[in-house]
Simulated assay, not measured.
Amino acid sequence: MNVMSVESSITKQIVELIKTEAWDAGRHLPAQMLADRLRVSRQPVNDALALLHEKGIVTREHRRGYFVARPLTESMSEIVSHLGLAESDVVTGTYFRIADDLLRGSLPQEFSEQLIKTRYDLTATQLNAVLGRIAKEGWAQRKPGYGWAFSAMLTTPDSLLQSYRLRLALEPAALLEPGFRLERSVLEQCRATELRLLHGGIESATADELHDRGVRFHESLVEASGNAFFIDTIQRVNRVRRLLSYRSMAQRERYPEHCRQHLHILDLLERERNDEASAFIREHLLHTMSSLAKIEDVLRAQRNSP
Rank of each mutant, 00 (worst) to 15 (best):
E253H: 13
A224K: 06
M289D: 04
L49Y: 00
A149D: 00
V90G: 06
V3Q: 04
L187C: 12
E113R: 12
Q141D: 06
T92L: 10
R271E: 14
L187H: 12
R271A: 14
I295V: 15
R142L: 04
D89R: 09
A169E: 11
D275F: 14
S81F: 04
S81Y: 03
I18H: 05
F229S: 15
R271K: 15
M289H: 05
P71V: 01
H262N: 14
A135I: 04
L243M: 09
Q43M: 12
P306C: 06
Q109M: 11
A224C: 10
Y95V: 05
L197V: 00
L72C: 05
H284C: 10
T125N: 09
G65I: 06
L197G: 00
R239H: 08
A99P: 01
L154E: 07
R273S: 14
H262L: 10
S106K: 11
Q141G: 10
N238A: 05
R42S: 07
I134L: 10
R181Y: 13
T20Y: 09
E203M: 07
S278V: 00
S5Y: 02
L269F: 06
E171I: 13
L244F: 01
N274A: 13
R133S: 08
D36V: 11
V237R: 09
I265L: 09
I295M: 15
A228R: 15
G145L: 01
Y246M: 11
S278I: 00
L292N: 04
K19H: 05
E87F: 13
E21R: 15
L221T: 02
A25L: 02
C190D: 04
R104M: 10
R133K: 12
R271F: 08
H199D: 12
P144Y: 02
G138Y: 01
G214A: 04
C190Q: 12
E272H: 15
L52H: 06
F180T: 05
A69D: 11
L168Y: 07
V186L: 15
S106D: 08
L107S: 03
R119K: 15
L52T: 08
L170S: 00
I234P: 01
K117M: 13
Q109S: 10
G105M: 04
E87R: 14
Q162E: 10
A152S: 12
V130Y: 02
H284E: 10
I10F: 02
P256A: 10
A50W: 04
A152P: 09
S112L: 08
R39I: 05
F229I: 15
Q302T: 08
I14A: 00
Y246D: 09
Q261V: 03
L107A: 03
Y164L: 06
P157D: 05
I265W: 00
H284D: 12
V45F: 02
N238S: 08
S8E: 07
H284Q: 13
A31F: 01
L269V: 09
E257D: 12
Q32S: 14
T94W: 00
S41T: 14
N227F: 09
R239Y: 03
D24Y: 08
P306Y: 06
E16W: 03
K136C: 12
N128D: 13
E171K: 07
P157M: 06
D267G: 07
E7N: 14
P71Q: 03
G214H: 06
R303V: 06
G226K: 05
Q109V: 06
L115G: 04
Y120W: 04
T11P: 02
